[in-house]
């Protein structure tokens, strides 16, 4: 596995080859660093909210409350602010729509300017991915942080795994082609159904 460097990233973005790296819009070429690609905070959010239910249930029981009821949808325009409160989890995406080649995978972490404020982002993107990068924001700090939509909040490292994966042609992909944050589909995992049958044959 090999970490892609700046020239390779730029060459791939600039290539018209269908299987090259796709980043759109790349508002500033300076987003491409020596071994990283800065990504910007997107404009759609799903904010976790408190409800009357004490927990998010994943066990697949009858009458289980939908995961969507624990999140509130909201949008901003680029340049608007979004306040992330302490211990709040928010789903969002990158501003950029990414298309990864079948042999490139991506790790996404917080840029240090934001991790120093207590913001944590830790995501990975499969080879062949298409969509805005899903970002799970969490504020570990004691203070609310006012983020600006469109700011460079995370950075991605791209790795050539030197072997094409079948992710893009797999039927198993759940979060493919998304342009806004998608709620967890953990309760739809086939494994959950199998596990639930263990104690309830």
């Amino acid at each position: 596995m090999r970490l892609l460097h700046r020239e390779e990233i730029l060459e791939s973005i600039g290539s018209e080859d269908k299987s090259s790296l796709f980043v759109e819009p790349l508002l500033e070429p300076s987003q491409v660093g020596e071994v990283t690609l800065d990504l910007r905070l997107g404009y759609d959010f799903r904010v976790s909210i408190l409800t009357r239910s004490p927990k998010v249930e994943l066990a697949g029981k009858e009458g289980q409350r939908s995961i969507s009821s624990f999140f509130q949808e909201t949008r901003r325009e680029v340049g608007d602010t979004f306040v992330l409160y302490p211990s709040q989890a928010v789903l969002t995406t990158s501003l950029e729509y990414i298309g990864l080649p079948d042999h490139v995978y991506m790790d996404v972490v917080t840029r240090s300017s934001y991790s120093r404020l207590g913001i944590q982002i830790n995501s990975m993107v499969q080879p062949g991915f298409r969509g805005c990068v899903p970002i799970e924001l969490f504020n570990h700090g004691n203070n609310a942080v006012e983020l600006v939509v469109g700011s460079r909040i995370c950075q991605a490292k791209l790795f050539d795994v030197e072997q094409s994966s079948g992710y893009s042609s797999s039927n198993a992909r759940k979060y493919y082609g998304n342009v806004r944050p998608t709620l967890s589909k953990a309760d739809n995992d086939e494994e959950i159904r199998i596990l639930s049958r263990i104690n309830n044959p």
Partner: peptide
């Protein structure tokens, strides 16, 4: 869903580039 999302994102990308360029 995907095709409508691609239309939406295509338009949004045009808006973003325009606003960024103007700013």
């Amino acid at each position: 869903q995907i095709i409508n999302d691609l239309v939406e994102k295509s338009v949004r990308n045009k808006m973003l580039k325009e606003k960024w360029g103007n700013a």
